[in-house]
């Protein structure tokens, strides 16, 4: 019994300590955004990788999700003669929830893993030590450009996901469910409110930040060898996905609970 309590205590303390380290790292990452020198070229490369190159996967994911959502809502609504709500529910579902969450999870899979593997490889091959000996702070050279690119790319990708998700719903609704395109778009525009869009983009900022910081954190704290790189990559994606979903709940509660 005492052994079980001891183990539970040790695990709890370990989890709290890890949370503390991640929080501290996030704070340092925020500070690094404002401390020169600023590495513009690295920032440009990060924006290209995190933002632009994520467009295909984000676009396709949201397009198919919007289309499937329209089918589901139509079929579900038909049970109580509410088929007409498809445009409204697709819009609110994509903009408030699915758009940001899909973007968050997609960049956790694509970007967090790639950052963690790259930075972890740099760690195990002593490239991080080399950076320091060349008078370059890894927080400013590696973390800040990726973090800022995440903060900027997140809302841009969410905006694309929202639009393509609604477009996916529109395509299915007009081609398979007999909706009129102009009416569908008019209903969508009438139903969406400014806070819906703001909450969606705000989630994009937070999720983009979480995805990039988690990649950098686990990469910089990777263990030795190929196993260390693999473990860091896996842990970064899991942590980013869980934190994104937890942050999504908190943000939704903050924006819409009243």
């Amino acid at each position: 019994m005492i052994k079980a309590i001891t183990t539970l205590g040790r695990l709890s303390l370990g989890a709290i300590a890890a949370l503390g380290r991640i929080t501290l790292f996030m704070g340092l990452s925020c500070l690094s955004l404002f401390r020169p020198p600023f590495y513009v070229r690295e920032m440009g490369a990060a924006l290209l990788n995190i933002g632009f190159l994520s467009l295909p996967v984000v676009g396709l994911t949201s397009l198919f999700t919007g289309a499937a959502l329209a089918l589901q809502i139509y079929a579900g609504g038909a049970r109580f003669n509410a088929e007409d709500v498809v445009p409204q529910i697709v819009a609110i579902g994509m903009v408030r929830e699915l758009g940001p969450v899909l973007v968050g999870l997609m960049i956790a899979a694509r970007v967090t893993s790639s950052i963690a593997a790259e930075v972890a490889t740099m760690k195990v091959t002593e490239q991080i030590d080399a950076l320091v000996t060349l008078s370059t702070d890894p927080m400013r050279y590696l973390v800040a450009p990726r973090f800022l690119a995440g903060l900027l790319s997140g809302p841009a990708l969410v905006a694309v996901a929202d639009i393509l998700g609604i477009l996916g719903g529109l395509m299915v609704a007009t081609q398979a469910l007999g909706f009129n395109a102009a009416t569908y778009l008019q209903n969508t525009a009438d139903f969406l409110t400014f806070p819906d869009v703001v909450s969606s983009l705000a989630k994009g900022v937070v999720f983009g930040g979480i995805a990039t910081v988690m990649g950098c954190y686990y990469g910089l704290n990777a263990g030795r060898g190929a196993q260390g790189v693999g473990a860091a990559t896996k842990a970064s994606v899991v942590a980013a996905a869980v934190l994104i979903l937890a942050a999504n709940f908190l943000l939704t509660a903050g924006f819409f609970s009243s």
Partner: peptide, 18 residues
Amino acid sequence: EAFLAQFGMLFQGGALFD
């Protein structure tokens, strides 16, 4: 920065930036 500016280091594996 001033301290590290005095140093050069050759790492075991080269540690070149890929």
